[in-house]
Write a protein that binds this DNA or RNA. Structure first.
Ligand code: ZN
Ligand code: ZN
Ligand code: ZN
Ligand code: ZN
Lengths: 146, 146
DNA sequence: ATTGCAAATGCAAGTCATTTGCAATATACA
DNA sequence: TGTATATTGCAAATGACTTGCATTTGCAAT
């Protein structure tokens, strides 16, 4: 399978051994279009027949993050961290305050603003982090949007 | 003392009993110009002669946040949450990657964008958090800007 | 000033996500 | 195939925060 070979290759590039756990996790993260928590990964793995311990999930996610293969979102408003495959794209997130779902937004409204800000402040701007909070359609229906 | 009376008044407005703990904590938060963790508040209180239990600090900070007197910053990059007095200002920060200086920006470039986003996504947007990273003029001179 | 009662507090124990020590196992590569 | 090293499972630990409960305190009505 092509994607699998690609994943295997990326692990090798990083000097990581190609274990079934790592391959399965990286594969899942690659296919998932929303960030996932360690527990979600754990449930997914064991549900799909890849028996793995929760501590191994944590260790693996952290290892992959260190190597730049994953991005870690440090507890935005939930109590747990979320990871996602690093597609090397600049994005922002719509974070639901009801269910903690994160919806990636490719669009960035700040390029122009940053240029103006550089002139106004004498800062050299290197980047930014923008998260937008609100309530998703489902949570609105549940009446959680208070 | 004027500020103290003011603090007392604000507690009353919120339907909170005016206890020495609450007054001391809110007073400290009001005077502190940087966000503080529960533990920092705990150390400060006990250091200034206001003996208090850590769990009470947690409960008090949370109560004051519920009433809108404090803002909670949920674990920025540390593992612990920070609280600050709510001065009812919407701001962002230019954060220097060289010296960690934070330059407040009152201006917000996102009002228009949020409206467009609501339409495009069906989210009800409640707020956002934007931090811009870069290098201040001094750090540029020191050649720290990578 | 006294009293009654809900709110606030201290203390100890409990959560819960995440981390760590260590022995057992799997992988890469000679 | 053998072996050094990385990875894993399991159980126990960590650390920030929360909670149950008995006691104390603020405050308002007497
Ligand atoms: Zn939602
Ligand atoms: Zn952007
Ligand atoms: Zn600087
Ligand atoms: Zn803004």
């Amino acid at each position: 399978m092509e994607m699998n070979d690609d994943i295997k290759e990326r692990l090798k590039e990083c000097g990581l051994k190609n274990t079934k756990h790592r391959k399965a996790i990286l594969d899942f993260m690659f296919c998932s279009r929303v960030p996932a928590s360690a527990e979600q990964v754990y449930i997914q793995m064991n549900g799909q027949g890849t028996s793995i311990d929760l501590s191994t999930v944590y260790r693996t996610l952290e290892t992959l993050r260190e190597k730049g293969l994953l991005i870690k979102h440090d507890r935005l408003n939930d109590t747990r961290a979320l990871y996602e495959y690093n597609r090397m794209e600049h994005k922002h997130y719509l974070v639901c305050l009801g269910c903690n779902k994160m919806l990636p937004i490719k669009d960035c409204p700040l390029a122009e603003y940053e240029r103006a800000l550089e002139k106004a402040t004498n800062f050299v701007i290197a980047g930014h982090k923008l998260d937008i909070f609100g309530y998703c359609a489902e949570c609105q229906e549940k009446g959680l949007q208070e």
